[in-house]
Design a protein around this nucleic acid. Structure first.
Lengths: 193, 193
DNA sequence: TTCATTTTGTGACATTTGTCAAAAGCTGGG
DNA sequence: CCCAGCTTTTGACAAATGTCACAAAATGAA
């Protein structure tokens, strides 16, 4: 089932971050799996530990949680060639308050955390790649926090159109509204203008 | 001027993240400096590149930027035993939109980015420490973004009292208000109740 | 202590955003 | 093609938060 070509995308992403010797590539392949999920299936539920990292070969996912009124709040949308974890749970090993769900039929490479740790240990240079990728996702996250602090609902929507237009094609507006930190109705009214 | 004892705090923080051999400790000392800043001095201004990482031995700083109306917006407050950079600028090497300013007289260990990269290169296990620290700060940042999306102004203030009460002792309310993403006046009214 | 400066609090009002209920629009399976 | 179920839009109104102007309080230097 596993096909070496499935890994080409992953290797390209990793190679941009640092040295990726063949021995490390082989170790990644032999420690991971390729899995398929249908649309609206869960990779992770609330209360579980996020013990796997997913690389999206194709498809899309959302990382979300239920706020105190039980309303879905989306914190991330991720697409092909991106990595998915529940940041808090994965890094702290504590149960997740978030869940992860596919938005489309999707194919992933999945690597268990203990295997990842094993790779970090046995291929010390792999820590460079891990560090750089963490930095990149961190920057994206910070941009989100700043945007929420700094801009009005309308401005946040305009920024999204500018910087992440593909979201609008692939994600429903109600999902986007909670990502922007506003209500469904407010987003609808912003768009009307 | 540089005293080996100045580094004890830093070494403790690093040691919690991973192996810190003596040779690496020595390399850190010989590649960094200890510097003092008075209250309200700038470590970094807008437009400059954040090319140094600061470890706070004592004191406090804020990371801030001016929003489009020219109003200060604070994104981070950092205290002793914490590390300070302008995340975006430091990781991307692009000019910073943020500035970094001391809130109190402060003492730092300062390490230039090129020296840090040299350390990462020559002590590969140092990447483990760097990766883990990046993960920790990432988690904190994500908690901020979620809080801004999920909670009302009042709730965000209550969370701050619960989780970071020391901020109230050391930081002015007007600085805290922009950190919480609300106006000075609204924070004042929330507090009255 | 005194006074200038900075920070914080208040009132009145404007604006933004949320909430609830219902209508309209869209979509995929049969 | 049609309908059930989902998503989006709309209206009316409520609540939260912002803005401006100014007053009060706190702070710090002389």
């Amino acid at each position: 089932m596993k096909n070496i070509n499935d890994y080409e995308q992953l290797f390209q992403v990793f190679s941009k971050m640092g040295e990726l010797p063949v021995s490390l590539k082989e170790a990644i392949v032999s420690n991971s799996k390729v899995v398929n999920f249908k649309k609206n299936e869960r990779l992770l539920s609330e209360g579980e530990k996020s013990d796997s990292i997913y690389f999206i070969i194709s498809g899309a996912v959302r990382v979300s949680y239920l706020n105190k009124e039980g309303i879905e709040t989306n914190t991330w949308f991720l697409f092909e060639n991106e990595l998915v974890i529940s940041v808090f749970s994965f890094f702290t090993l504590q149960p997740s308050f978030e869940y992860i769900e596919t938005l489309e039929d999707s194919t992933f490479i999945v690597l268990k955390k203990d295997k990842l740790d094993w790779l970090y240990e046995h291929f010390v240079e792999f820590n460079i790649i891990g560090r750089r990728l963490t930095e990149l996702y961190y920057i994206r996250n910070e941009a989100q926090a700043n945007s929420l602090r700094m801009f009005s609902a309308k401005e946040r929507y305009e920024q999204l159109i500018q910087h992440q237009p593909k979201l609008l094609n692939r994600i429903s507006l109600s999902h986007i509204s909670s990502y922007l930190g506003i209500s469904r109705e407010t987003l609808s009214r912003i768009r009307k203008k």
